[in-house]
Amino acid sequence: MKLTALALCLPLLWGCWDSTDIQQENIHIAEVIDYQDGEYHFYGEVADLGGQSRKGGAGGQGNLNFSIIKASGETYTQARDDLNRKSSRPVYLGALKVLIFTDRLAFQDVEEYLNRSRTQRNTRKSLKIITSADEPEDLLKAELDNASSVGLAIDNIQDNLMKEGSSFFVDIGDLLEALAVKKVGFLIPAMGVVDSHITLTGYTVFENGKKVGFIPQDQRRGVVFFLNPHGSFHYEVILNSNRYELDVTLNNKKITTTYADEELMIQIQMGFKAVLNYASTAQPATIGDREALQRLLEEAVLQDIVQALDTSQKEYALDYLGIYRYFRAQHNSTFKTIDWKQAYSEAMTEVTTDVTLVRSELPQEP
């Protein structure tokens, strides 16, 4: 009965394989890559078809259980070989849900691993990547509410945050593109165990494949508006001693760049839709109230966007917000020769925001 349940469960998660394929592969769901004491360390979260692992039966995965395989070596090749030798079946990476870089590896360098992924068997360019400051075994042994696998849990969290607009995810293809450009940086979402739950903690800032900084999650709103086309957050504003709560969602974005006399100008226009959900004092919202709320929200959103720009330009002198894509599309020949890092860090910026209150859950005066 157990094998029957697994045969039904696995195709739902990773596609339809026949039972022979399932029995003959060590199916990795998550991998953690670490660097410590001069060695690379691999931790694989593996679907355990024998049902002997420490986990099982939670989150709708039936009898699917998971175990952890650890391996190490002085090089990536040696670490991968050690992992293969410790695996009871051939390692299958095509079902990987998430690749996790530890902070130690992030400071060391992630570019070599990403470049190796181009030729690594079964590794998909669409594979999500996160970083974590947690110890690998602590993360992989975290208690989970609605999943039996850390890899599945992280994948679900990343998807949900992207869909609701409060974060974004990156995959191998995204990072390989940024590394190929060489003039830009990139962000990788960071996750860890907080209050016994796996959660988004912020974003790790990378330049030339190495960690150079960190943006905490409570400073992420402006960043997300650049990197998620449907960015959406809850805002609170005070008007006439009344506290209002609204959902503000990015509706449109236009970024225009000009370059003349070796000076870069970046003009950013973002439009938002807002929904009024709550007021601390229940009273009808007048037309004047709605107009005033729109102005307050425009200022609040503007501050978040400007903060994100200032941090990237002044603190890191690094374009990890994707502005280069607009400049390259608008001035391709110039982009090939320009010192983009310097031009971006010294660029003049002009940001305008527009917020339209499209719906209110509160009573309104005519």
Rank of each mutant, 00 (worst) to 15 (best):
L13M: 14
G15V: 04
G15T: 03
C16N: 05
D18T: 05
S19Y: 08
T20P: 13
T20K: 14
T20S: 15
D21M: 14
Q23H: 05
H28E: 08
I29C: 04
I29L: 06
A30Q: 04
I33C: 08
I33E: 07
D34P: 03
E39P: 00
Y40A: 00
H41K: 04
G44N: 13
E45N: 03
E45I: 01
E45Q: 06
A47L: 13
L49T: 12
G51F: 09
R54L: 13
G57K: 13
G57T: 13
A58K: 15
G62N: 13
N63A: 15
N63M: 14
L64E: 02
N65K: 14
F66P: 14
F66E: 12
S67K: 09
I69F: 07
K70S: 09
S72I: 02
G73H: 04
Q78T: 07
D82I: 00
D82W: 00
D82N: 04
L83I: 00
R85Q: 10
R85H: 11
R85I: 05
S87Q: 03
R89S: 07
P90E: 05
Y92T: 03
L96E: 01
V98C: 04
L99G: 07
F101R: 02
F101W: 09
T102E: 09
D103R: 12
L105H: 06
L105A: 10
L105M: 10
Q108F: 07
Q108L: 05
D109P: 03
D109F: 03
Y113S: 03
Y113T: 07
N115A: 10
N115R: 11
R116D: 06
R116Q: 10
R121L: 06
T123D: 07
T123W: 09
L127R: 08
I129K: 00
I130T: 09
I130H: 09
